Simulated assay, not measured.
Amino acid sequence: MTTALATPATKTWQWQGFSIRYQQLGGVGAPVLCIHGFGASSDHWRKNLPVLGENFQAYAIDLIGFGLSDKPTPNQPLAYTFETWGQQILDFCREVIGQPAYLVANSIGCIVALQAAVDGSDWVKGIVMLNCSIRLLHERRRAEIPWHQRLSTPIVQKILGYPQVGRFFFSRIAQRQVIRNLLGQAYRRPEAVTNELVEAILNPALTVGAADVFLAFVRYSQGPLPEDLLPQAQCPVWIIWGQDDPWEPVALGRKLADFPAVRAMEELPGVGHCPQDEAPELVNPLVLGWLGEAESVGA
Rank of each mutant, 00 (worst) to 15 (best):
V193P: 04
R180F: 09
P77V: 04
K11T: 14
G67T: 09
P204H: 03
Y59H: 02
P190M: 12
L282T: 06
G26Q: 00
A30F: 06
G223C: 03
L5I: 07
I155N: 13
P190F: 01
L215R: 02
R167H: 12
W241R: 09
N203I: 07
V262P: 10
T12E: 12
L252G: 13
D62G: 09
C34P: 08
A60R: 02
I173L: 05
G29I: 00
V271M: 01
T84F: 07
N203Q: 15
V208M: 14
R142M: 03
T84W: 11
V124M: 05
T81N: 01
V104N: 06
V112R: 10
E248A: 07
P249T: 04
L268I: 10
G98Q: 06
Q87C: 14
Q23S: 12
I134C: 11
A58D: 07
Q115K: 09
G29F: 09
G37F: 00
L90G: 01
A60H: 02
V128S: 04
T84A: 02
P50E: 01
V262W: 01
V51A: 12
P72Q: 05
L136A: 13
R150L: 01
T81Y: 05
T194L: 08
I108F: 11
K125Y: 01
A117G: 08
C274E: 03
Y162W: 15
I179W: 02
P50W: 08
V283P: 05
W45G: 08
I61K: 10
A30T: 15
L151F: 11
L288R: 11
P269Y: 10
G17R: 06
E196A: 13
G67R: 13
Q177E: 15
L225V: 02
Q222L: 08
P146K: 07
H138P: 05
P269D: 01
S221W: 03
E95D: 13
G26N: 01
A186F: 09
P269K: 02
G242T: 04
D91K: 00
Y220D: 00
V193D: 11
T73L: 14
T194D: 06
W85Q: 04
A60P: 00
P72H: 12
Q222D: 15
K71Q: 00
Q24T: 13
Y162H: 15
Q177M: 14
C235T: 01
G53W: 00
E293G: 14
